[in-house]
């Protein structure tokens, strides 16, 4: 069962979003989708003067072909907004982020668990179910799965010609993250942020306190 926990509003509005397009992914068969929490968060966002252009429900965002069709279908609405807020597992967020290169794609929830069922998971992206989705801090590229050391605070300095020290076939995840953060002017804003992982979140399906940054 896919289990997600909705992020606190603070973890979303700090990225300076103004106009957003919201996608709820209800694809996985046995999904635990906290519909009510999502609606509450959307209300809170509206009350915080964030303009929600449209909210859609769909399925299998993790399937890139399918996500491309959706982004074509809602092209005019998406063009109008600055950010996309997505309620899905980490794969869905990464897939949409890779399709919509010029939009900031933010996760609306933390993915805790997907035992036994992986939906139509993309081959190109991975969600490690860390329970505290960092994709909002890293402009839609996962530092846990795209960095061989799963570093949270920047590149290790071991990359050569853009390739990882562990595997020369693998791109340095942080070089890509940095580039994308710079595109949205988000790198400077993170200079004071120290991220430390909470391994308690790895314990099966633990829905606990909402994550806050140090």
């Amino acid at each position: 069962m896919l289990i997600t926990q909705i992020k606190s509003i603070k973890e979303i509005i700090k990225f300076g979003i103004k106009k957003i397009f919201v996608i709820k992914c209800i694809g996985c068969k046995e999904v635990y989708f906290p519909e009510k929490d999502v609606d509450n968060l959307i209300n809170e966002l509206t009350n915080s003067n964030i303009e929600i252009i449209q909210t859609i429900s769909t399925e299998y965002l993790c399937n890139a072909d399918f996500s491309k069709i959706i982004s074509e279908k809602y092209k005019s609405q998406i063009e109008y907004v600055d950010s996309i807020l997505i309620f899905s597992c980490g794969v869905g967020v990464q897939v949409v982020s890779s399709i919509l290169e010029d939009k900031l794609v933010l996760p609306g929830c933390d993915t805790l668990n997907i035992p036994g069922y992986q939906g139509l998971t993309s081959q190109n992206f991975n969600c490690d179910l860390c329970g505290e989705c960092y994709l909002n801090y890293t402009a839609g590229i996962c530092p846990i799965t795209s960095c061989s050391k799963s570093l949270l605070n920047g590149p290790c300095g071991g990359a050569k010609n853009g390739k990882c020290e562990v595997n020369k076939e693998m791109d340095c995840g942080w070089e890509k993250i940095y580039k994308r953060l710079s595109k949205f002017n988000l790198a400077k804003k993170q200079i004071d942020v120290v991220k430390i992982r909470n391994f308690l979140k790895l314990q099966e399906g633990v829905i606990g306190e909402k994550n806050e940054t140090v």
Binding site: K149, C156, G158, V214
Partner: peptide, 27 residues
Amino acid sequence: LTGDHPVLGDHKDAKPVFDLDSVSLIY
């Protein structure tokens, strides 16, 4: 420092810890 990955050394099959990194260790 963060440190090199174990695969660069002589215990390639070791668990890479990286619980903290250079920034969070300074912190």
